[in-house]
Amino acid sequence: MGARHLVTLTLNVNGEMRRVTSDPDTPLVYVLRDEFKLKGTKLGCGLEQCGACAVLVEGAPVLSCVSPVSAFEGKSITTIEGIDANDTGSRVQAAFVTYSAAQCGYCTAGLVVAATALLDDNPSPNRVDIAQALTPHLCRCGSHPRVFRAVKAAAKS
């Protein structure tokens, strides 16, 4: 048991090929946070219900807290730490700063990732489009009104 289950996997994270030796069933978020020390991706539920753990996989938002790391071999993963490599990502970040679109900030990384994916897909979303894209994400501090403002501003800029 234990050690015999470990495998070595290669993952493309933020444009870098990284190797990790892990139990293949470990949910991706634990590998990102604990092995690669990319602590920006948060864990809120581990049940795909809150959005805190969102990352981009091949450009689309994916919750990383349930699916096993082995499912991500060969795919390109972008975490909050790498989101500014994309022009949309850095625009979203700047707009979140301008509009103070966070309170405690625990939900913020997931929201920035989701908003980046939205704007890459739909450069001028309306309020309903934004709401739809962000509904998988919870914010318990009630930063929602400022997040709407920030995403709208990022779309315009």
Partner: peptide
Amino acid sequence: PRMRGIAEMVRGGHAFIHDLD
């Protein structure tokens, strides 16, 4: 005033207790 910590939050760099390592 600009909110303290916001620039780090949007980059995933704001350290929460959960992130201690």
